[in-house]
Structure formats: structure tokens, C-alpha cells
């Protein structure tokens, strides 16, 4: 085994198989933006704190600034552009729209990817658990209140669905 600095990666991005040559040092975030050319994944801090760059890898949220593109080879990535195709993705987007859960919208892609995972896996989450799940996504505009309300609405609509 010889270490290499340019690597061929294969991954499924928003449902479509893709193959690229990447530099070993390239972050998944930069790869998605600069090479794949999908720009919805936003870069806010590049050290894993703000959460704006969060994408789903094999269904779970990861910081794309703290992942190498090469490490994502062989995996399935969903970005904000693919959220609408997730089970509760459109419902989340609708509730965000109705609750005015975004202002500048820069942190929103990372919040929606994180929450798309969260509402699917924690159907009974309390408000406190929602806040905890959002703790890794910084938003400087909204004061969080309407984001929490929008996510709560998705979760309670799931309860309503279950009762029907």
C-alpha cells in the first residue's frame, strides 16, 4: 500500500452515483461545493462548531468541514438539495416556511439536514431534546424560537398521523 495524494472517489450524492478525482486533503464540504458544484452546503467555521455544513452520510448527520472527501468514498451523501426527497424533508421545509424559522438562511441547510435525521429517529422528542439536538447548529438571526417551533410541529404532526 502506497499513500497517495490524489484519490478517485465514488459516492452517491443525493441519489446519483458520482465519481471524481480529489486531493487527499480536500474536505467533503469543499468537494461538494467546488467539484460537484452543488452550493447549498454552506461553510461557516471549518472547525466543526457552527454546523452550517452538516450533511447526511449514510443517513446520519456529519460535519462536512470535518470529513475528508476521500473518507466519504463508498458512502451515500445527502445535502440540502436532497432533503426534499427524504421521508419528512418536505414537511420540515413547509413548517420552516410557515413558522418563519429562518432569516438570512445561511445556517438553514445544516439545520434541515440535521433535523431531517432527528425527526425521523426521535419521533417522541420533547422540546428539551429538540433544543439539545439543535445545539450543534448556530443561528445568529432567529433566536432559535421559531426553529424549535417548526421542528416541534413536524414531530407533533407525526403523532397526529399515528393517531389517524
Amino acid at each position: 500500500m502506497e499513500p497517495i495524494s490524489v484519490v478517485t472517489v465514488d459516492m452517491i450524492i443525493n441519489g446519483r452515483p458520482q465519481q471524481y478525482e480529489v486531493e487527499a486533503r480536500q474536505s467533503l464540504a469543499d468537494f461538494l461545493r467546488d467539484q460537484v458544484g452543488i452550493l447549498g452546503t454552506h461553510i461557516g467555521c471549518e472547525h466543526g462548531v457552527c454546523g452550517a455544513c452538516t450533511v447526511l452520510m449514510d443517513g446520519v448527520p456529519v460535519r462536512s468541514c470535518l470529513s475528508l472527501a476521500v473518507s466519504a468514498s463508498g458512502h451515500e451523501i445527502v445535502t440540502i438539495e436532497g432533503v426534499k426527497d427524504l421521508p419528512l424533508g418536505q414537511r420540515l421545509q413547509q413548517e420552516f416556511l410557515e413558522h418563519h424559522a429562518l432569516q438570512c438562511g445561511f445556517c438553514t441547510p445544516g439545520i434541515l439536514t440535521t433535523m431531517a435525521h432527528f425527526v425521523a429517529h426521535y419521533p417522541k422528542a420533547t422540546e428539551e431534546e429538540i433544543r439539545d439536538a439543535l445545539s450543534g447548529n448556530l443561528c445568529r438571526c432567529t433566536g432559535y424560537h421559531n426553529i424549535i417551533a417548526a421542528v416541534s410541529a413536524v414531530i407533533s404532526s407525526r403523532h397526529d398521523d399515528a393517531k389517524r
Binding site: I38, L39, G40, T41, T79, I80, E81, V83, K84, Q93, F96, L97, E98, H100, L102, G105, F106, T108, P109, L112
Partner: peptide, 13 residues
């Protein structure tokens, strides 16, 4: 609902 949100919620800002 805001006009801006339609693009921002899709990552199309």
C-alpha cells in the same frame, strides 16, 4: 410566508 424562503429552504440561495 416569505418569498425568500422558497429558495433558501432548497439550498438555492
Amino acid at each position: 410566508p416569505r418569498k425568500e424562503d422558497l429558495r433558501l429552504l432548497q439550498g438555492q440561495g
